[in-house]
Amino acid sequence: MNPTLKALLITLALVVAGALIFPSSYYFRVGSLIWINTISVTGIVVLLGYVGLVSLGHAGFFAIGAYAVAVLPGYGVPSGAALFVGAAAAGLLAMVIGRPILRLSGYYLAIATLGLGMLIWMVLTKESWLTGGPDGMVVAGFNPRHWFALVGIKMKSTEAWYWLTGLVATIGVVLAVNLGNSPWGRALRAVHDSDVAASSLGVDVARAKVVAFAISAVYAAVAGSLLALANGYITPDTAGFMHSVEMVTMAVLGGATTVYGAIVGSLILTALPQVLTFVAEYEHIVLGGVMVATMVAMRRGLVPALGDLAHRLAMRGRSK
């Protein structure tokens, strides 16, 4: 099957399956969080899985999206347009910052994004005239149930948010798969395997990296806008270092080379603290432990590892 179509069907099926089995609003609420995380983690997959670069500041881009829909409506920009402004701003910032850094190889992006994320967090915390400071700010009301009502479907707000975030996540996943299988995506993967080999085949390595970085920033910003609108409230913690780490951990755990890894990673690490409350208390130990353990024992992450296992079992079955 065409990989893009396959991604569309699988993701949609998961969205629908969730809606069918969720017994209460609470589940729909957690479901929306899972899809919002899927969006930002899919951005990490494009950057980490496709090109092989680590960002430790994606929460900064996430917060740009979030604060765009929080601040701009106060200046007369509608929420929907503000989402696009936030996404464009994040993408542009990534390009400006990324261009000089990504000419250099290795870990420089990780260090620079670590600083960038902190700088954004600092600005959001200190410039309280604009952002409400550490207490955060209220995000103007926006309710997707009215959209669904327009086409004659009546549902609760939490359900409407679930469907909206699920659909946006589906679009994000499909676009990422499509990118991965396009000539551009193959260029990105070539860079992942070897900068030198890729450039000898005519890939503009620096440009490929900048584009991937900008795309992943846009994913984070869109996810941020959706979270701010769904919560109706936003604080600078969204830009915090731990949030960036969380995104990378989700990608690493699920398997950064595939968008399905983004879905599985978001699902596990979003649902886990809800099921096991001690996980939230020991957030640092769990996230850090998962990162190290995955990298040491199962470097490619859950989804590729399970894929390998299924393949091996199938081969054994055939040889018998």
């Binding site: 680590v54 990378v248 020991y282 640092h284 850090g288 432990g289 990298m295 470097r299």
Partner: peptide, 30 residues
């Protein structure tokens, strides 16, 4: 953490040390 990873690519080593730093934070918090 570092030795068991063997000849892991640079990206993996970066992720391992970040993970280790977060883990140590958590341990100190407890």
């Amino acid at each position: 953490a570092i030795k068991p990873a063997g000849k892991a690519p640079l990206v993996s080593l970066v992720i391992i040390t970040i993970g280790a730093s977060i883990f140590l934070r958590g341990v100190m918090q407890v």
